[in-house]
Design a protein around this nucleic acid. Structure first.
Lengths: 226, 226
DNA sequence: TTATAATCTAACTAACCAGTTAATTAATTT
DNA sequence: AAATTAATTAACTGGTTAGTTAGATTATAA
């Protein structure tokens, strides 16, 4: 466990950006593994190969570090989703594009949903929360964007009539939940739910579920109807 | 904040069952508010109006107390769901009965989903988990019961063809997620998502979503079968 | 080349918190 | 009424952990 024999003493002013990034990365892992209360600043510093005081040099305190982690996570997610939504295609495609992008982002960052969930859970009772900032800064934009697509699809007759807010909530639920409950599934089924092919299966199931729940049956699925 | 002037010194051997129950109840609240790492045994004792040592008298340690809380929560949930599933009605009704019962139970116990979510999150990495016991003792029974109903409905042509595991996961997601994300919603919409009428709206949206995603369009929407 | 300021660390502190101990109270048995 | 045992508590202990301090190191500016 002892470090490499030749110690790269880059001295002070070594790689400030690298140090900061290393701390943030380690914090993402530590917070997602243990939640905020369970996370240990010492562990973060160790994982980032940095003195603990440096953590406090770059971030005011544990809470602020946690806030930075949240910003990191959500800015990545929202920019990814925004891009998927920006394409100008028919409502059906856009909804599926959104859902697919959201799913893929989470699948590609398996640590993130735990952090999101952990933060969601803090708001119930207790002191300071970052949720207000996060909600205003990230959620609202995406939410109204998706809601707009839903309205378009409904008025075009492509979608069933649904309550936008509840429908979006349900989509997020389906997209997200699988990754949080993966441990239980592993226990119950014996297979690894995070493996490539299992994730692919889940993706298909999610899109199928959403499409079935939202899309108005086509008049002409390929030939005729009724 | 000082206690009542007349102290009901019931002395030792007061109400053992009551003490134990008070501890468990306080623990449900504390664990659901703060997660296991954030929960404070002192706070539980205080809330239960009991000396901290008594907590350790009745429960081996914090971990065991947490386990007892989980058992309490899940036994209630599963027995409630089992009852809803036991009725012998057509698959469509049974699925909606299950979803409705699950939803209602959670709506009636708003502290519980947080505990469930917290426990789900512990399995990712870390030491001992109660999840294995919980899964075997509670989840499996319900899971296979619901899966059986799905298979019946599919082979009867009432349901679309779906993967049971993924579909159940999605249903649980939709039923559950709303309550966890309530704080965000409160922030974003300004209304209280846990209020009676908001919960009722959500319930309708959930059942509508599930029905639309699962039920095969009826040949004869109101009359007889083919 | 010296001063300045940014980057980084070893070692410390003060608070916190899970769990223990040893004693106390009262219901029940003998 | 003495002995026993279940229920309960005040006060303590020891390990952990967030956060601090005072100083070291070096790139860059003056």
């Amino acid at each position: 466990m002892q470090a490499a024999p030749i110690k790269f003493r880059l001295g002070s002013r070594g790689r400030p950006e690298e140090s900061r990034a290393a701390i943030l990365l380690a914090a993402v892992r530590e917070f997602s593994d243990n939640g905020i209360a369970g996370a240990r600043v010492d562990a973060i510093a160790r994982a980032a190969k940095v003195n603990k005081a440096l953590v406090y040099y770059y971030f005011k305190d544990k809470e602020a570090l946690y806030g930075a982690v949240l910003d990191h996570v959500f800015s990545g997610l929202t920019s990814c989703i925004s891009e998927a939504l920006s394409k100008n295609s028919p409502p059906r495609d856009r909804i599926l594009a959104y859902a697919g992008a959201h799913f893929d982002y989470i699948a590609g960052h398996p640590l993130y949903p735990r952090i999101v969930q952990a933060e969601l859970m803090r708001a119930g009772r207790g002191g300071a929360t970052h949720l207000e900032r996060i909600g205003k800064q990230y959620f609202r934009r995406i939410f109204s964007h998706v809601a707009e697509v839903l309205r378009q699809g409904m008025s075009a007759g492509d979608f069933r009539m649904v309550d936008e807010m509840h429908f979006i909530t349900s989509m997020v639920a389906i997209i997200t939940f699988y990754f949080n409950s993966a441990p239980v599934m592993r226990l119950m089924t014996g297979v690894d739910p995070i493996s490539k092919d299992q994730v692919a299966k889940r993706r298909a199931a999610v899109l199928d579920f959403i499409a079935a729940a939202l899309f108005e049956p086509r008049r002409n699925p390929k030939g005729v109807r009724s």
